[in-house]
Write a protein that binds this DNA or RNA. Structure first.
Lengths: 189, 189
DNA sequence: CAAGATATGGAGATGATCTCCACTTGTCAA
DNA sequence: TTGACAAGTGGAGATCATCTCCATATCTTG
């Protein structure tokens, strides 16, 4: 799946510079207001080099996204190991909102990508989705959560939270969505 | 707010042609794969005319969106008038999923726009949001729905459903989101 | 330290978007 | 009707972002 060829020293340096600057621009939310060529300049790299490393905007975004997702998945695993399943799920989802709140620009960027050509992020997302699925499955096993609702629904709700990044009452509404999801997930009756 | 100037006869005809073709292209989901100039051709109109009527892709999309929203709002009002509030809310949300399912291309288009420059659709959305808010408020008044959750959260969830249009198990997951929201909305305890 | 392999930058080709204006079409007063 | 002015049209070409190509520079290895 990964035929990682050893990268030449300067190549790795440039690649790193690009990723670092990309993270910065993402967080500022300027990713789509910036000419791709200008981005190369910003990172101190020729356009040719930019395109060699990341043939498209999406490719670059995906690379940044990978790091984000890895962090979140770690968190999920740690939570799952140290508390009851239902609590782990709740904590994770609440934390997710915190995370998005702290990286609005990134949320905006990713939402755009998702909508545009969702294929681009599909692989990166898969890991996150797996983490959520695991959390839900564990809670179901504990009997704390109904078993007739797909974990994908939770992903969809998260998606909505991320996509609606610029609503005025975002924070409150996002928290409310999580509340609805968590209460809805409790076995009804 | 609206200084509607009387439009000349031929101008109105062209405008109508553009909107009609736009609706068609939207529904096919090809809106973003099409050169804007080519779209003018498709509608049998010069590029100048296209740009005069709709200075940007977003402007055109918004115009189409208005019609969609109007239909949905009507439905909401009709439901609210003919059945108990809680039932009206449930029926409306379920119907919303049907509607999106029947217009996947449109959903895709709108999701892209929302993410890109969400300001563009803000005004059109407001009407829809008002309808949802009304439905929820009525259900709260009936005591069928908790009052500590903002109706905006429901909008966010709907947003997520629309934005995630291309997940493989979309239909099932979308229905599940509605289930979670509705069950979550019932006064807990 | 040579020689081959690998990577770089940026000038310019490509192709989409948007502007501009000479011309056409509609409107309305006489 | 018709003349005259206003309103609208279309599409050639200016403009601008994306992406390619390759002469040059930099690493690596024997």
């Amino acid at each position: 799946m990964s035929a990682d060829k050893p990268l030449r020293a300067d190549a790795r340096r440039k690649r790193e510079a690009l990723l670092a600057k990309a993270r910065e621009v993402f967080d500022a939310g300027d990713f789509f207001d910036l000419r791709f060529d200008d981005f190369a300049r910003l990172a101190g790299v020729g356009t040719g080099t930019l395109y060699r490393h990341f043939p498209t905007r999406e490719a670059l975004a995906e690379a940044v996204y990978r790091g984000e997702v890895a962090t979140l998945c770690d968190r999920a695993r740690r939570l799952q190991a140290t508390m009851p399943a239902a609590e782990a799920l709740a904590t994770f989802l609440r934390g997710m909102v915190d995370h998005i709140a702290a990286h609005k620009g990134l949320a905006r960027t990713l939402a755009t990508l998702m909508a545009d050509r969702s294929g681009a992020l599909a692989e990166g997302s898969r890991a996150l989705e797996q983490a959520v699925t695991d959390l839900v499955a564990a809670a179901v096993r504990d009997g704390a959560v109904r078993d007739d609702v797909d974990a994908g629904a939770v992903m969809m709700a998260l998606h909505g939270i991320g996509a609606a990044h610029d609503r005025p009452g975002w924070r409150t509404e996002a928290d409310d969505v999580i509340t609805l999801v968590l209460d809805g997930l409790r076995r009804p009756r």
